[in-house]
Design a protein around this nucleic acid. Structure first.
Length: 255
DNA sequence: TCCCATGTTGCTAA
DNA sequence: GTTAGCAACATGGG
C-alpha cells in the first residue's frame, strides 16, 4: 500500500522515535519473517528510505530492509491489534509490523535484486527518463512505476502525476518529448512533496506510525474517480486496466 | 459469487 | 538477449 510519500512519512516519524535507541527484543509472529532477528540486535543508527523500502542501519554496519508491499504498516505503541506479524521492542516502547495480507518482507541487502532507479525527489530525472524511455513501446505509466527506472512511484500517484502533466497513461514511453518528460517530473515532485506534507493517502489501509490516516486522499483528482467529472474539463474520468492495475485518467485532458 | 485492492517477482511468450 | 503481460503470493471488503 505505501508509496514514496507514505514510506517517507514513516521514515521521518521513525527517526524521531528510534534513532539512537537499542533494540531489546524481537518477536517474530509470522515464520515468513524469521531469519533477520539476529541482525536486529543493537543500536539503531539510521532510518533511510530507498524508493518504497525502509532501511534500518544497525550498529556494526548492518542493514535490514523492510518492504511493506500492499498492506504492511508500522505502528508505535502498546498493541498493534490483529495482524501483528513482528514486534521490535525498545526500552521505551514497541514497534509493530502489522500486515493482514502477509506480503511484507524483511531482508538483508544482497546483489540479487535489480538496482533501484532514480528517486523522483532528487537527481536529474528528466534527462535520465528521456534516455531510458528511448524506443520503449511500453505505456508511460508502466515505466513510471518500474522501480528499476524510478524508485518510489506506485499505482495511485502514477495516475495522479500523469493527469497533472496532461499525459495519457497509455502513451508509449518512447513517444514523449523531452519537454513532456520535464512536465511529468515536475508534476511528480509537486504531488509527492505535497503528499508527504499531508502524511500520505489513506484509501483503506494506510496509517502513519501513530495510527493516524493521511490527508492526501482529499487531493486525488482521478484515482478511484471513474465516471466522476474531470476537475479541469468536466469530462467523465475513465478507468482501464493496465498490467493488471486500475488506471484512471481524463480522456480529454490527457493525450 | 465475483471483483477489487497503495507491490514485487518469476514465468512465459513474443 | 529484451520486452511485456500476467499469475501468484494471502486476505479482506464491497
Amino acid at each position: 500500500m505505501p508509496e514514496l510519500p507514505e514510506v517517507e512519512t514513516l521514515r521521518r516519524q521513525l527517526e524521531e522515535v528510534i534513532l539512537g535507541q537499542e533494540v531489546s527484543k524481537v518477536e517474530v509472529l509470522d515464520p515468513k519473517l524469521s531469519g533477520v532477528q539476529g541482525v536486529l540486535k543493537g543500536e539503531v543508527q539510521g532510518v533511510e528510505r530507498e524508493g518504497k523500502l525502509l532501511a534500518f542501519s544497525i550498529e556494526g554496519g548492518k542493514r535490514v530492509l523492510l518492504s511493506l508491499r500492499m498492506t504492511g504498516r508500522l505502528l508505535w505503541g502498546k498493541d498493534g491489534g490483529r495482524y501483528v506479524r513482528l514486534v521490535i521492542h525498545f526500552p521505551h516502547g514497541r514497534l509493530h509490523l502489522v500486515d493482514p495480507r502477509r506480503f511484507a518482507t524483511l531482508s538483508l541487502p544482497d546483489g540479487r535484486s535489480a538496482p533501484l532507479g532514480v528517486d523522483p525527489l532528487e537527481g536529474n530525472l528528466p534527462s535520465f527518463l528521456v534516455q531510458r524511455s528511448e524506443g520503449r513501446r511500453a505505456p508511460v505509466k508502466t515505466l513510471l512505476m518500474d522501480q528499476r527506472h524510478v524508485a518510489g512511484i506506485g499505482n495511485i500517484y502514477a495516475s495522479e502525476i500523469l493527469y497533472a502533466a496532461g499525459v495519457h497513461p497509455l502513451r508509449p514511453a518512447g513517444s514523449l518529448t523531452a519537454e513532456q518528460w520535464e512536465g511529468v517530473v515536475h508534476a511528480a515532485r509537486a504531488i509527492l512533496e505535497e503528499a508527504i506534507g499531508l502524511r500520505g493517502t489513506t484509501i483503506s489501509d494506510w496509517r502513519d506510525l501513530y495510527g493516524r490516516p493521511g490527508k492526501y486522499q482529499d487531493r486525488l483528482r482521478v484515482y478511484g474517480r471513474k465516471g466522476e467529472p474531470c476537475p479541469r474539463c468536466g469530462a467523465p474520468i475513465e478507468r482501464v486496466t493496465l498490467s493488471g492495475r486500475g488506471t484512471y485518467f481524463c480522456p480529454r485532458c490527457q493525450n
